[in-house]
Write a protein that binds this DNA or RNA. Structure first.
Length: 958
DNA sequence: CAGGTGTGGTAGC
DNA sequence: CATCGCTACCACACCTG
């Protein structure tokens, strides 16, 4: 750094530095760094060289394609273990196989790249002669080559490239190297740049990356063939391969690959997770309390997509030619980004292309290049890290907030840092960034607005803040969008179209704002008008605050369905997609929400935007999943029933959105159950209330399993669960009523009966599910007729074969939907006094099923084994036993399984109970416990049977 | 009052 | 032909017990 600052011309620094602090509104769009002058500036040349040396010294060659780094090694190892542990005969795992295949290769790739890294480090230790010319390349070598694959491999990685062992369908290979190629491979590689190996060797000789087009493999006589097969392929596969709308099986993949907003959102989430993880790691190492950073820098690319897309069009004069990025060149496609030349014509982001072309007929439309955006972003963040700020807060793929606590000789040094950063990013990415800096986030953001394009703007004069703010439109304030602006405009200007500025708000009191916008927004807005903002961007101060709280998928384009089956298929695919994301991100979730967009009455059937959603009403409904899970089948069924509960006419459906929340971290790991539990306690900290008892217990030096005390909320929940409806209660036989009353008396809550509770709103599906799960629990007659399904494999086969499978899906959903509105007379309220009373008297320990995390079905199996073992452990010369709360969670899961036709799974769980009880490990010191387990096992089979009978399955009980 | 649920708004290009 | 209008998070209104 110091070395470089010497090469910076002093005069510039002085000139800019002076003006900075003379007037607060000075802009530094220093022409010195505009694209044209940049390269010719001699001092810059030095700087650039220097910087490159520095890169070479410090940064290791690209390890994995961008953003994949966030995957921890642990996850991958675990995924692999999962893969190996799969039982081929198991239905669940069979379905997972395809995804895991990819995981397997991913893992392999990572291992390989690790090895590569080690090799590169070793080789470059004593020599510095490998310029990273392939640093943006991901290269796959095909077939026999000269030099051979091993040599090419070495050449590529030593020069900063990534070598691919396997070319996956979604592979991000940038180049394919081959000397010979079969016609078949020509088709296979038709989407790749296929280049001769000489490209590698020559590039290394020249010490720079050469134009690959001069090294393409397809010789002229092949070209014809390529074209032919290409056309052939296109013609044949066009109707099949190109999704038209969401009825196509591959629609989701296709849609997300091309959606800018999807990319923006996932990049953001990934960055957030990455920095959160780093902060978490850092805060464990040093617990020093940091003060709030004194300087906030807000740094952002100028029209990021447009600038990056233009890089692949060297013929374009980016500074003067109007450019926009969108899909296709006309019609209702969104302009996602446009350069400043285009903005002069009134073109803006979000505008439709046809409108933009009206405003600016010579506007050039460029395509998206999501991969390149990612690459440039990676470089950007690498550079931000390199200046070693106090903290980095990612705002977007191309935008970050940076906190600096103090720098010596603040003013000139800050400017120096900013200019150098801008230079470096320009050299490395070919795109310009702007920087705004101030003493809080609000003002830094506003400074950035003033700095754009390609400039720097500082504001450090608290006394002058009123002056600084007065002409700022309120729309520019963070968190103030179109709606709030509209409301302000209506209130203040009475409909006139003038933009509302901060000075317009000076007369508005804090109370008025709070009344208008609520306590939070109102207070925030009032503070903003005084230039106050206490947002803290230091993630490391409270990393757990930034942990992910939900995962969602939104599709509001291309949604056109005619039949219920199409909707259901789509929901299944969404479920599959979201479960894959849960797996990849290492989460399980306990709550599911479905949000639908329905064409507003009177809105045109076909909106102006092709396959767009048009004007819509949004309707949402959520449900609890019983236990944290990522079971695809379960989630799919829940979605389908939620869809029916919301009840949007299929023809009016325009958008589908699925959110899973109440997440728990769950990097499936082969650690022991107890270890897992302890990890869970840490991970669950955000929800302190629920874990409190446990934590206290641990602090007291006691067991991690808390003693059960019926707290108020638990009691409420119990009532909710067991007493769904008072009418239903009254309809019960007398002895049942007595039993329940006695039990509740024991808990001294019988006064709750005196009140007459309102009719249950039936809002929550889960409530009904819970009541359903109790069905048939203590009916002597069914108990007597209980059949032993497990012991008789023939019965099992018959059982599963006799179910009218093709109708099951419908009946399941139908059944659930009906339940949400209807009561099942006499069956609704069933309390099993046995579990409720005796359990709490004798057994007082949780196994804590409720806070376990559940991955796939295998984990439930292990958990159950463990739980059985645990219940036999001795405490005060009595076995710990089974806690009703655990049992509740367990039954909840079983119920969901049954609803999802996971018959085999339920049976195998029942089987596990039998096996565990027969295992010699257990000390048979209390027959009660064993008989409890046998009852539970019987209950599983009973629940299963009841459900199957309802569906009309023919069960052979002989 | 604590909590749950449904809805609405915002940000990035 | 077109076109790829996502997603995480906060805040709030309203309801229940």
């Amino acid at each position: 750094m110091n070395k470089n600052s010497n090469s910076q011309p002093k005069s510039n620094e002085q000139e800019i530095g002076d003006s900075t602090f003379e007037a607060f509104n000075g802009t530094f769009s220093s022409t010195q760094f505009s694209n044209d002058n940049l390269v010719e500036d001699p001092s810059f040349d030095d700087l650039a060289k220097d910087e490159f040396m520095e890169c070479d010294d410090i940064s290791p060659p690209r390890k994995t394609p961008f953003l994949n780094d966030t995957k921890s090694q642990g996850t991958l190892d675990a995924s692999l273990t999962e893969l190996v542990d799969q039982q081929p005969d198991h239905k669940e795992t069979k379905e997972l196989k395809f995804g895991d295949y990819e995981t397997y290769f991913y893992h392999k790739k990572l291992k390989q790249q690790e090895k590569d890294d080690q090799y590169v480090q070793w080789r470059t230790k004593n020599s510095n002669q490998f310029p990273p010319i392939f640093s943006n390349c991901v290269i796959y070598v095909n077939g026999r080559t000269d030099p051979d694959i091993t040599q090419l491999h070495r050449m590529i990685i030593l020069h900063g490239g990534v070598f691919l062992n396997y070319l996956g369908a979604k592979s991000n290979a940038t180049h394919v190297i081959a000397s010979n190629i079969t016609p078949r491979k020509i088709i296979e590689f038709k989407n790749f740049k296929v280049i001769k190996p000489e490209w590698i060797t020559d590039s290394i000789k020249e010490k720079k990356i050469l134009d690959w087009t001069k090294y393409t493999l397809f010789s002229p006589q092949y070209d014809q063939k390529v074209l032919e097969s290409d056309r052939e392929l296109k013609e044949k596969s066009l109707p099949l391969n190109r999704p038209i709308d969401a009825t196509h099986p591959e629609f989701l993949k296709f849609f997300f690959e091309n959606s800018r907003l999807h990319h923006l959102s996932t990049w953001k989430a990934d960055l957030r997770e990455k920095f959160q993880q780093e902060a978490l790691r850092a805060s464990k190492v040093s617990q020093t309390l940091r003060t709030k950073p004194k300087i906030i820098m807000h740094i952002d690319f100028d029209c990021f997509f447009a600038a990056v897309s233009a890089l692949s069009h060297p013929d374009i004069d980016f500074a003067n030619e109007p450019i926009a990025v969108s899909h296709g060149g006309k019609g209702s496609s969104d302009v996602s980004s446009c350069n400043y030349a285009a903005r002069k014509f009134g073109v803006s982001n979000g505008m439709w292309v046809n409108r933009a072309l009206e405003l600016c007929p010579e506007l050039k439309i460029l395509d998206y290049d999501f991969k390149l955006y990612e690459e440039k972003s990676k470089i950007f963040y690498e550079e931000l890290t390199r200046i070693e700020p106090d903290c980095i807060f990612p705002v977007s793929v191309d935008e970050a907030l940076i906190g600096l606590s103090s720098i010596d000789d603040e003013e000139s040094t800050l400017l120096n840092i900013c200019e150098k950063l801008r230079n470096k990013i320009y050299v490395l990415t070919g795109c310009t960034v702007s920087i705004g800096a101030s003493y809080n986030v609000l003002l830094a953001k506003l400074c950035l607005r003033k700095a754009k394009p390609n400039g720097i703007f500082f504001f450090f004069q608290p006394n002058n803040v009123g002056n600084f703010l007065k002409n700022i439109p309120v729309k520019q304030l963070p968190g103030i969008g179109r709606k709030i602006e509209d409301r302000l405009s209506n209130h203040l200007n009475k409909g006139s179209k003038e933009t509302v500025t901060i000075s317009n708000l000076s007369s508005v009191s804090r109370d008025t704002m709070v009344k208008f916008f609520g306590i939070k927004t109102g207070t925030k807005l009032f503070g903003y008008c005084q230039g106050l903002d206490d947002t803290d961007i230091d993630i490391s101060k409270n990393p757990s605050k930034f942990i992910r709280k939900s995962i969602s998928i939104d599709v509001n384009w291309g949604i056109r369905f005619e039949k219920q089956t199409q909707v259901d298929e789509f929901l299944s695919r969404v479920a599959d997609h979201i479960c894959q994301r849960l797996l990849r991100l290492g989460f399980v979730g306990a709550r599911l929400m479905l949000k639908l967009a329905r064409r507003t009455k009177g809105a045109p059937i076909d909106p102006p935007k092709y396959l767009g959603m048009g004007l819509c009403d949004f309707l949402s409904k959520s449900t609890n999943l019983g236990a944290p899970t990522r079971e695809v089948g379960l989630i799919a069924t829940e979605l389908k029933s939620l869809y029916r509960i919301i009840g949007v006419a299929i023809a009016d459906l325009r958008g589908v959105s699925v959110t899973i929340s109440e997440l728990q971290k769950c990097d499936s790991d082969a650690t022991s159950a107890v270890d897992q539990k302890q990890l869970q306690f840490e991970a669950k900290k955000p929800k302190e209330k629920k874990v409190q008892g446990i934590e206290q217990n641990v602090l007291k030096g006691g067991s991690v399993f808390p003693h059960y005390s019926p707290a108020k909320e638990t009691l409420q929940k119990l009532l909710q669960k067991h007493l769904v409806d008072l009418d239903a209660f009254k309809a019960l036989p007398n002895e049942f009523q007595q039993e329940i009353k006695l039990e509740l008396e024991r808990r001294s809550v019988e006064q709750l009966f005196e009140k007459s509770p309102k009719k249950n709103r039936n809002r929550n599906c889960l409530l009904q599910n819970r009541s359903l799960k109790k069905i048939g629990k203590v009916r002597p007659e069914t108990q007597n007729k209980r059949i032993d399904l497990i012991s008789n494999q023939r019965t099992l086969n018959k059982l599963t074969l006799n179910i009218p499978i093709e109708n099951l899906g419908d009946s399941v959903i139908h059944q659930k939907t009906e339940l949400s509105g209807l009561t099942m007379e006499g069956q609704k309220t069933l309390v099993n006094s046995y579990w409720a009373s005796e359990k709490t008297k004798t057994f007082n320990k949780h196994y804590n099923l409720g806070i376990q995390t559940f991955y796939e079905f295998e984990d439930w199996k292990n958990l159950l084994k463990d739980w059985v073992r645990f219940s036999f452990e001795n405490e005060n010369e009595k076995p710990i036993g089974i806690h009703e709360n655990d049992l509740d969670v367990f039954y909840g899961f079983i119920h969901k399984l049954i609803l999802n036709e996971k018959i085999y799974e339920v049976l195998s769980l029942a089987d596990i109970i039998t096996c565990s009880l027969n295992s010699s490990e257990l000390v048979d010191n209390d027959t009660n416990n064993e008989s409890d387990w046998r009852k539970i096992r019987g209950e599983l089979l009973n629940m299963l049977k009841t459900n199957l009978v309802q569906k009309g399955a023919c069960i052979d009980t002989t």
